[in-house]
Design a protein around this nucleic acid. Structure first.
Lengths: 162, 162
DNA sequence: TATTGTTATACTCTATAACTATA
DNA sequence: TATAGTTATAGAGTATAACAATA
């Protein structure tokens, strides 16, 4: 399940066309909405060289100092090898440090550097503002409703069984 | 903006972790929901060698006989070259035919074959059923509300200016 | 045995740029 | 000039499999 690239794509609704079953599929409606929100994300992070997985990784490390690479991968829904490359990227840019983990000598404990903390704050503020701007097409009540409904359907089959 | 691969990924919510700003971002909630719906899509199309772009392309061609490759690309939000490879794939499997376009001799008119029509019907029924099953975590009123809210935020900046 | 991090490799989807035929 | 289709190339993101160190 690859993540989206930097390029701002757009799904244009062509009025003359029939969309058939696509008009009633929650999955397709989600994709259209996500493309629009990715546009907002792109504007918010322009010039920062940030992608959605990088954003998520930085926020998670910032809020969970000492987290391991494997756990980070689980949160992002990617394999260990991918999490590692993501961490490499953050380390190369001086935003994250790998420190020894006292409890498990196999694992690294990930921590934001001071530079990383500054960057994460700036990035979060910018993304949050653009997300709100895009979502300003909704009232705040509608926004809460949307978050609630999305949360309800975000359950995987595995979790439902558990 | 690459599409998702076949592998059913999963974003696991780790209860011990702080999610910080991710909990209030519409964009992140959309991504989680989309991952769950992709799981449903995967189950629905297991063994069919179908991906979301292939599904969308087949449905659109089926509902819009004679459509050109470029228009198809616009609907999917991908470049012409990508639309072409998608059409190659459908043609190789005997689902779609490229016919000469009477109005514009540069373009192809795309049409489903009889085999393609049968396949599309089967595929649509299966995907719709799984989408409903996943969305059955919602009442039908909630489902309509969700579709409406998603539609509201699916407007790109370009469209808003227009 | 199972798990963490690592490395190497391969695959999918998409973009870009250049070419041709037609508009 | 601009657009439709084509071709070739490159890049991002992810998966898988295997290995060493540790649990």
């Amino acid at each position: 399940m690859p993540h989206r690239s930097r390029t701002t794509a757009s799904i244009v609704r062509v009025p003359e066309l029939e969309y058939d079953v696509l008009d009633v599929l929650i999955g397709y409606a989600l994709r259209r909405a996500q493309v629009a929100l990715y546009g907002a994300f792109d504007r918010a992070t322009r010039g920062m060289d940030i992608t959605p997985p990088r954003f998520t990784a930085l926020v998670i490390v910032g809020a969970n100092a000492g987290i391991s690479q494997s756990t980070l991968g689980t949160v992002l829904g990617i394999a260990r090898s991918g999490a590692m490359m993501l961490v490499d990227w953050m380390v190369e840019r001086g935003m994250v440090e790998r420190r020894n983990c006292p409890r498990d000598r196999r694992a690294w404990g990930l921590h934001l550097t001071v530079r990383g903390e500054r960057f994460v704050e700036k990035m979060k503020a910018s993304v949050l503002a653009e997300d709100r701007r895009q979502a300003s097409l909704l009232s705040s009540a509608e926004r809460r409703t949307l978050l609630g409904l999305l949360d309800k359907i975000s359950v995987t089959k595995k979790e439902r069984r558990a």
